[in-house]
Computed example of a mutant assay.
Amino acid sequence: MDERPQRRSLAAMIICCNEADRIEACLQSLADWVDEIVVFDSGSTDATVAIARRYTDKVWITDWPGYGPQRNRALARIHSDWVLYIDADERVTPELRAEIDKALSALQLDITLFRIPWRTYLLGGVLRHGRYATPQNRLFKRQGARFREHQVHEQVVLPERRVATLRQRLEHHSWRDYPHLLRKHRRYAALLAQHKYEQGKRSNMAYAWLRLCTDFVQQYLLRGSVLDGWRGLLIAATLARYAYWKQVDLKQIEDRHRALDAPALLRR
């Protein structure tokens, strides 16, 4: 008789849009392993939805309210004890599957959140150091969990936060090519600038230039991207520009609002 403890139930949660070229590899890494796969698509015009439906009947097509709100919509459809939130450009390796199974089969489990390191690929090679090699909050206990209602860089909030870090890595194929790398960071910068504006924060262009320099030094030297050769240089430069773009976009939002407010002020 097999007396090994049974793994706690596990769901995979994916939000996506126009990921037909990447989502199948993600779903293949989850198939016949997790207890449920929940997919929320925000209006794909390619074959993303058709591919997802080959792996799960839990597929919803919605509008796009932002990353945090969309993840909360998907979370509300999950019934399993634990949730792995994963993007279409990520893959669970057999080694990571085995480590998660072992963790979720422990007789005594007081952890509520597991962090999983990334193995991020950039233009045919791996980023082994810096921001894109760090552990991510990806596997959590569902009961009482929610995501912050942020447009980007949302984080999961738990009623009790007890954290452990797994050793095996989550495969991360974030960028199709160099233009996609730039577009993605540019879009995130614009979303974060809007979020900052709504919080009452305002731009500072002197600070923007300072962040351009300090973020490069931090990523390239202090966080070790220099050890990744030309790819490390490329990602450090991109992240430095990302920090700069957030301030530039915030300044543009301020200027637009001033222009809209000016006629009203003149009429007073």
Rank of each mutant, 00 (worst) to 15 (best):
M1P: 12
M1F: 03
E3L: 13
S9G: 06
A11Y: 03
C16L: 14
C17M: 08
N18F: 05
N18I: 04
N18K: 09
A20K: 09
L27W: 06
Q28E: 08
S29M: 09
S29F: 05
L30S: 12
L30P: 08
D32S: 13
W33D: 11
I37D: 08
V39Q: 14
F40S: 07
D41S: 05
S44C: 12
S44Q: 12
T45P: 00
V49D: 12
A50N: 11
I51C: 10
I51S: 08
R53Y: 00
R53E: 15
R53G: 10
K58M: 04
T62I: 00
W64C: 03
W64A: 07
Y67H: 12
G68S: 07
L75F: 11
R77M: 14
I78F: 03
W82N: 02
V83D: 05
I86F: 08
D89E: 14
E90P: 02
E90R: 05
V92L: 13
T93A: 06
R97P: 10
R97C: 13
E99L: 08
E99G: 07
A103T: 07
L104C: 03
S105T: 11
S105F: 06
I111H: 09
L113C: 15
R119L: 13
T120D: 05
V126C: 14
R128W: 02
H129L: 01
A133Y: 05
A133E: 03
P135W: 10
Q136C: 07
K141Y: 10
R142Q: 13
Q143P: 00
G144D: 05
G144R: 08
H150P: 00
H153L: 10
E154G: 09
L158I: 06
L158Q: 09
E160A: 12
T165L: 09
R167V: 11
L170T: 06
L170N: 06
E171K: 03
H173I: 01
H173D: 05
P179A: 06
P179Q: 10
P179H: 05
P179F: 07
H180M: 09
H180Y: 11
L182P: 00
R187S: 12
Y188V: 02
L191Y: 04
L191H: 00
K196M: 01
K196D: 07
Q199P: 01
K201Q: 15
S203P: 06
S203F: 03
N204Y: 05
N204V: 04
A208D: 02
W209E: 15
L210M: 10
L210F: 14
T214E: 10
D215S: 15
Q218H: 14
Q218W: 15
Q219M: 09
G224F: 14
S225V: 01
D228K: 02
W230V: 12
G232W: 01
I235A: 00
T238Q: 14
L239E: 11
R241S: 09
Y242T: 11
A243T: 00
Q247A: 13
D249I: 00
K251P: 00
K251T: 04
I253V: 14
R256Y: 03
D261F: 07
A262D: 03
P263W: 15
L265N: 03
R267W: 06
